[in-house]
Design a protein around this nucleic acid. Sequence first.
DNA 1: TAGATTGTTAATCGATTAACAATC
DNA 2: TAGATTGTTAATCGATTAACAATC
Lengths: 222, 222
Amino acid sequence: MKPVKIPEKTVTRLSIYLRCLEELEADGVGSVSSKQLAERFGLNAAQVRKDLAYFGQFGVRGLGYYIAELKHNLERILGLKQDWEVALVGVGNLGSALIAYKGFQARGFRISMAFDADPAKVGQHIDGVVVMDAAKLVPTLRKKKVKIAVVAVPSAVAQSVADLLVEAGVTAILNFAPAQLAVPEGVKVQNVDLSVLLKTLSYHTVRTTCATPRRVEARTSA
Amino acid sequence: MKPVKIPEKTVTRLSIYLRCLEELEADGVGSVSSKQLAERFGLNAAQVRKDLAYFGQFGVRGLGYYIAELKHNLERILGLKQDWEVALVGVGNLGSALIAYKGFQARGFRISMAFDADPAKVGQHIDGVVVMDAAKLVPTLRKKKVKIAVVAVPSAVAQSVADLLVEAGVTAILNFAPAQLAVPEGVKVQNVDLSVLLKTLSYHTVRTTCATPRRVEARTSA
DNA sequence: TAGATTGTTAATCGATTAACAATC
DNA sequence: TAGATTGTTAATCGATTAACAATC
């Protein structure tokens, strides 16, 4: 009955803890303390405990966390106990690469269908996935109950694609188009804007490599 | 004099404001207020003004901001008045796609060289870029004074690649490997961990599609 | 038990938002 | 001038960190 708001950043960190646990488990380690976990990424031990405590009491006082158990719980919390069918929209350079990208399958996400509006692309096979006509998007996703979609279309059509996905019952969108998607409450959008990320990097680079021109000093006032 | 710390999020938003200004300019609009700009993404007008004020006084009281002028300033601040040569390391599925990805070039970032350790790939041409031997990385980047690199190698070797990049004088890394890179002070790493993003989405999806007692907070936003 | 580490509350820090004098 | 909107300070909100009783 507690409407505890869980920060977005906490969820992101859970994934990172999970990755670390997988590595530790592969090394044959049985348990780990919040301190050890935190040191692994330069985080704070209290933060690790707090992140985990949002979801339950997984630790053992005086000992730490049993890796197998915590891993199981994080997988459960993150929804990784099942495989997810992912639909991809937009089979351009990036879209094709994402289909072939092995990183997806490994972790229970499988791009099992792809859509494009270009008749030349429809019917093509890319790494075992048939490209379907974008006109079939809504009925196909509805029928297969697909909840997660990747948008890799030009930004000019990204919003209209998002509208279709929402109509089809999709609740989570990984958006590579450099556009702000408007979606109803309950639909989650993760933007991966490579252009914005690169600009952040160029900002950093001019700051560190060039001499920064001084800012205009604020005027004095009473 | 003032060591004003500029939040990471502010820099990210500057890119987004810039994109908006480009759209407005294309529409022939001459000026825009912080309120109009904020409404465009459901942000707060005060936040827009504060973000901009970190870098100077670009507005006109009673009027707003002249689009051409603000655009010019944001480009200057973000380091977009020059083209950036970008080096790509790891010519796998994702790496090849990034080379071909048009989004990069359009905005002044040009992947002008690519490296791979696989002898079978060295010498290949991908979209006009020759793949070079990873052994040549350090001298080549040093010579060309490349400051920005994209890491698209398997996570097992990501850290060793990062070490080489740092040695070569790179100050900004866009990292697609699901690994935490340790780099010295002054080097900026932007992680693009698709696996983490997908897990956030699956978390969201299990929360919303499975029975979860929750209170929906009504938030006014267009 | 003594030592270690959790879960959780309280203190701190930083970022967002509101408010308003300055001024176009 | 009157109305509008900035730049900036103060108030609020949320997230991180410190501290510590509980307890393995």
